[in-house]
Amino acid sequence: MIEAKELKKRFGRKQILNGVSFTANKGEITCLIGINGVGKTTILKGIMNLTPMDSGQILIDGEKMSKDMYEKITFIPDAITMIPTMTIAEAMQFMQDYYKSWNQARATELLRFFKLKQEEKISSLSKGNTAKVNLLLGLALDVDYLLMDEPFSGIDIFSREQIADVFTSHLVEDRGVVITTHEINDIEHLIDKVVLLDNGVVLKEFRTEEMREDEGKSVVDVMREVYRG
């Protein structure tokens, strides 16, 4: 389980996070929702120790972040984290060189799944394919937790569908996934849990199936209530 407790972060005069707490379970897909600039990405970077929090605590299975944790949890930012002049094969080699948790068989499978050619240079790929390579480099790690920042934004519909397919496949199975989005429509049926954020705090945290069962509301219904109400 990923536990975020009372996270606070200020950038200059702007209090981006003002006491954010939530949990994300292993084996579930948790979605952080909020308009752009609400601090979703900052939370993910905070979990990965890529941006220090001013206060608060982050625990992963009860442990604090450390260098060894990068074999257990990974982050897929919204832009690719590789050198553009590398080919896909070189990028995969880089990952294999540094991560014990790199799973080459899974990487090969993902290449096929996304129909990517490994001799292609990253800089020559389309936006959609770049997003897929970015995803591949994260998904091919045998980690327990995956954090993804806006995996569906700014790419074509077919790439989006392919990426959505990943979530229902064994490629994600049994892992804890945290994704951020400002556009929930495509993925409502994919997620287990929703954390609604605004003004640096969590407005509501709920499980999607429970919400449908107990109150007959879709995620968008709840968002309308919370953000407009």
């Binding site: 959505a164 229902t168 199975e173 049926h189 997620i191």
Partner: peptide
């Protein structure tokens, strides 16, 4: 359950349930 989740584009946990 995995195949079902994939066919219906739903969460595997839901298919399981």
């Amino acid at each position: 359950r995995r195949e079902l989740a994939n066919q219906l584009k739903i969460n595997p946990n839901t298919a399981q349930r």
